[in-house]
Simulated assay, not measured.
Amino acid sequence: MRRGLMGWNAEELPRAALDARIARLRVAMQRNGFDAALFYTNLVQPSAVTWLTGFTPYWSDGMLLLPREGAPVFATALSKRVANWIRTTDTLSEIVNTPKPGVAVGKRIAEAGCKRVGVLEYDALPAGLYDEIAGAARHVELADLGSVFADTRRVIDDAERGLIGRADALARGALDQIDADKATDAGEVAGLVEKQARLGGAEEAYIAIAADLDSDLRMIRVAGTLPLAGRFAVRASVAYKGAWVRRTRSFAHDEAARRAYADADAWLARVASSIEPGQSLAAQLQARLKELPDAMLRNATAESCIGSYPLTAAIGAPSAGSFLVLAVELSLNGLPWLGAAPAFIDAR
């Protein structure tokens, strides 16, 4: 559940940063022949609109229209009662409250004389909205904006780096609350971690647990009582002002496993802080394993935010200036270990 009023803070997210993001995207739009761009947003697909405007929806959906010039237009079926609140978090856009957002943006597209409009995740646009837009802008070509937006979005700015850092601090602080010697129930641990993250200011915190690493490495959301085994792992996915991170940490009761886990945690921290851009991530991980004697790489994934969803699988070599979450599964001389940490890919 998304909780807490996410008010706009000009110190954390300066207006100049939002203006610069829009300017960068407009350059890319012009270069690729788009007269405007459209972004659908809802509870689970907030990230593109949040990145461009600072606004994150609560239990609602809407459409953001970004023309080649002029103010963006955010159309939503929310009543006018919340328009003033939206304006406090989205200071860039013209807010249009309407029962048919698709019709509203379609009319704006037609009035502006647009010929080609890019739609982020075009194939996933709700059919009802597509029909409304196409009906109001009959002679406009709609095309997918995915790669154009991803190339622009992939490079993070200082403001986003600061928000990610704050989200990561909340995740780390929440996981620090776990005492492996006292932890016996997965449900209680999940509640403890979520409580700490939300008290610190996180608007979203999703906690998943692998309750017995020796028998099942799958992370699950725990709704009730579930006993914890001698070795377990906890993953905290935390959002702060629309910036998401994931942290995973493994815990053990026996001293030998604790020492091995501590070494693996330190290894992951070193790796995450020194990923080389433009090179295979799998190859880099395999090369760094020499720092952990008797360790075997079982699996590794990377996630980043380049669309409307907060974190999705990152494909290809990491690029300079980007951000990703690195998740790794190791066997430490037969001991299962799971870890995940955020990584900033700085130019070398």
Rank of each mutant, 00 (worst) to 15 (best):
L43S: 15
N32A: 06
R24C: 08
P14D: 04
R24T: 02
P46N: 09
R31Y: 03
T50D: 06
L25F: 13
A20P: 00
P46G: 15
Q30P: 00
V49W: 00
T41P: 12
D19M: 07
P46L: 02
P14F: 04
Q45T: 05
W51Y: 13
F34D: 05
F34E: 03
S47E: 01
V49G: 01
L18F: 09
V49T: 11
Q45Y: 05
V27G: 10
P14A: 03
Q45S: 12
A23T: 12
P46H: 10
A37Y: 06
L38C: 06
V44G: 08
A17R: 12
Y40E: 10
A23G: 10
G33A: 02
N32P: 00
Q45E: 11
V49C: 01
I22W: 00
T50M: 11
Q45H: 08
I22P: 00
I22H: 02
L18D: 05
N42D: 15
M29I: 02
L25S: 04
T41Q: 11
A16R: 14
D35R: 07
R26C: 11
L18H: 08
R24F: 00
N32E: 15
R26F: 09
F39Y: 15
V27E: 14
A37L: 03
R26N: 06
G33R: 05
V27P: 02
T41H: 05
I22K: 03
F39D: 13
T41F: 11
F39T: 04
L52Q: 09
A23C: 07
F39C: 12
R26H: 11
V27R: 15
G33E: 01
R31N: 03
G33N: 02
A17T: 14
A37C: 11
F39L: 12
R15F: 01
D35N: 11
F34Y: 14
A20D: 13
A23S: 14
L18M: 14
V44E: 14
R21M: 09
R24Q: 13
P14V: 01
A17P: 12
A16Q: 12
W51D: 09
Y40S: 06
L18T: 11
Q45D: 06
A37P: 08
P14T: 02
L43K: 13
I22T: 09
Y40R: 08
L38V: 15
D19A: 12
F34P: 00
V49E: 00
F34L: 15
T50R: 15
A20G: 01
R24D: 14
P46A: 14
N32Q: 14
P46M: 06
R31H: 10
I22V: 15
Q45A: 14
R31M: 08
I22Y: 00
F34T: 01
A17Y: 09
D19G: 00
R15Y: 05
L25H: 02
V27Q: 13
V49L: 07
